[in-house]
Design a protein around this nucleic acid. Structure first.
Lengths: 174, 174
DNA sequence: ATTCTTGCAAAGCCTTTGCAACTGC
DNA sequence: GCAGTTGCAAAGGCTTTGCAAGAAT
């Protein structure tokens, strides 16, 4: 479902755990590290790239990790605050993706099949830098989503069109 | 709440109504044009720029236009399908904005006060054109949202910081 | 007359929250 | 043992939907 042009710095589940514990400890009121959190981080950082809360719950269930929906949501929020996950809006759906050790990137989203393609666009900041200066606006992050139809779906569609033509306009011999 | 750099082609409520009727009539099963729809279009195209469904309901109420929430949602969907409104994701909130007769544009969104600044970025397509070609992806539309802090909030914040300093470190004379 | 639209209330979906029991530190 | 975490179930937003009554063509 997800493809990437990016040179991925592989993030081990253990280093993600490590970083999460540092985040928890660094809070004004230190937070606690629990078994449920450890399991979620291991699961997320050894498998997924893009996923939503619903998917994650289902897959955790399938893996026989009994973590309640509430805890999944609470932990996802903490992981976002810790900078381990990034919350992105892909079309209508909210997805989470690895953030820690992963470069800023943008998304192509196929409206037909939901496929997500990531790409880097270093020139993008230049596109909005001018307006920001003009308005004294201090940008903190951006999100570019390009929607459309992926190559596979285009091919499938044109194949279907050819077929429709054949069925609709039988040859004189037919 | 909304500012714009754009040269707005003023769209009269009447021409929006006109175009909506054409859309309704052009459907395989023609749809009907109603008083509630006319009132909503007049309201939207004589006032708002960005708004969400909730705001619109409240303002319609205030204007003594008694249109139910369900009808507001149903009509908004039709207006989007008709190409009169565009649905945009601004941060966490879904907003609607005029589409018909309004150029493609991007958004700066202030995380503090919600202010929205629109700008045009003709160079933006070039940013993703290459990846699309590479993947055989056919782009249909894009959405760039830059979040951060607007000039006013920056000033308010630095003023507050100065104040905090004064309060926290009283002068020897204080 | 037919069929779409409306309003209402109910349900859906996703996410958060109150509370009592539990557990990390 | 204190304070944060969990699970549950309930409640919260926001949006859609089933249905009977009303309106547009």
């Amino acid at each position: 479902m997800t493809e990437s042009l990016l040179q991925r710095q592989l993030e081990s589940p253990e280093s993600a755990v490590q970083r999460f514990r540092e985040y928890l400890a660094s809070r004004p009121k230190p937070l606690r590290f629990t078994e449920a959190q450890r399991q979620m981080i291991h699961f997320i950082f050894s498998r997924h790239n893009h996923f939503d809360a619903e998917q994650l719950c289902a897959e955790l269930d399938r893996a026989n990790l009994n973590i309640s929906r509430a805890t999944v949501y609470r932990t996802l929020n903490k992981l976002v605050n810790a900078g381990l996950l990034r919350r992105v809006q892909l079309g209508n759906r909210v997805a989470y993706e690895h953030d820690y050790g992963y470069p800023q990137h943008e998304h192509l989203v196929c409206d037909q099949c939901g496929r997500v393609i990531e790409f880097e666009a270093p020139q993008l900041e230049a596109v909005y830098e001018g307006v920001c200066r003009q308005y004294g606006f201090q940008p903190s992050r951006h999100n570019l989503v390009v929607r459309g139809t992926c190559g596979d779906c285009l091919r499938a569609h044109s194949a279907k069109c050819r077929l429709d033509l054949i069925l609709a306009v039988p040859t004189p011999a037919g």
